Amino acid sequence: MKCAIACGVIEIADFQMAGGAAGRRIVVAMSGGVDSSVVAALAKASGAETIGVTLQLYDHGEATARPGACCAGRDIRDARAVCDQLGIAHYVFDHESSFRSQVVDRFADEYLAGRTPIPCVQCNMGPKFTDLFQLARDLGADCLATGHYVRRMVGADGPELHRAIDPARDQSYFLFATTGAQLDFLRFPLGGMPKDRVRAIAAEMGLGVAAKPDSQDICFVPDGDYAGLVRKLRPAAVAGGEIVDLSGQTLGRHEGIIHYTVGQRRGLDIGGQPEPLYVIRLEPETRRVIVGPRAALAVGAARLADLNVLGPLDRPLTAKVRSMARPVPARLHGHRLVFEAPEFGVAPGQAAVLYEGDRVLGGGWIAETESASLAA
């Protein structure tokens, strides 16, 4: 274990608080995967009393049948086994009802409304942070630690949120709604190292989850069939409608707008067109899918709702409008985000996360977009 602890010495420093970690209490959010397990090990190595907490998000019968999910049956057992090995307490709290109402139902409703949801952000805003925060405080914790790949750095005005050093693992996009008060209480010890180092620490410490595969991006849709889940939760979602071009001419029919997202090209089943067509927008009230050439996807500006501010926004910045997109130059005027150059595939329901270098300045939900030909 000495080598593993030496590998994690920088990450252990993330737990050092005024007066040192001895005599302090750290609550670790444990999903049952390798990341949160290593966080628990590093917290224990810091000298603080460490408690593992797992939120059960599915009923036991359903959870055991969900390979690739997190906070499920096997995952709870894995989290408990790691805590037993480390000699720390482990608690499981049933949050199935909260997860269903705040994340799963909202996911279905967003698709029905013609938007493209990001359930991982909603989960962080609800069960994983808000609920875990209260649990950690009820347990008398000095901080809450998670296995997210993001960095918490202390600047002149207090804690700041920064990208992880490993760009392939960075999760800052999904944490844009983290508040300043939450950053005061949070610790992210994995943001300063790559994934292979995390697995190496787990292996050297003999943790049984060292080689466990990562969970799915959307844990409650492990087979990737988003439309199937929405149909199950909202039977009305199967209502069909027309596929029309920008002039309103009918080109075909569809079997529910839940099968489409802005920017989609494949699966339109429209033949005989002179150029490739893309989904430009969705009209849930008329059940129409509007398609057009790629040029019609160019967005010049977007209106953001529920803006969360983590730093100064009155300056040139970069904006990331999809989890896998690169940040692009932009400026924020009130709640209106104006792109320096036309941006493609900007979809209502997604998030626009704002950066200055590696620092997260905040972000908001994309409520509506403006065509590049109209935005000024």
Results as ranks from 00 to 15, higher is better:
K2P: 00
E11N: 14
A18Y: 12
G20E: 10
V27D: 00
G32E: 00
D35N: 07
S37W: 00
A43P: 02
T50P: 02
C70R: 08
C70T: 09
A72Y: 03
I76P: 01
D78A: 05
V82G: 01
G87M: 11
H90F: 09
V92A: 13
E96R: 15
Q102N: 14
D105V: 02
D109R: 14
C120Y: 09
N124C: 07
N124L: 07
D131C: 10
A141Y: 01
G147V: 10
G147T: 12
V150M: 13
P167K: 10
Y173N: 11
Q182W: 12
L186A: 13
M193K: 06
K195I: 09
A200K: 14
A202P: 02
G206R: 06
V209H: 01
P213H: 12
D217Q: 13
F220A: 08
F220S: 06
Y226H: 15
D245N: 15
E255V: 09
G256C: 03
G263D: 05
Q264C: 05
I270V: 15
G271F: 12
P274T: 14
V279I: 03
E283C: 04
R288W: 00
P293Y: 06
R322L: 08
V328T: 14
G334E: 04
H335Q: 14
L337H: 04
P348T: 10
A351D: 04
G357M: 09
G357F: 09
R359W: 02
V360S: 00
T369W: 01
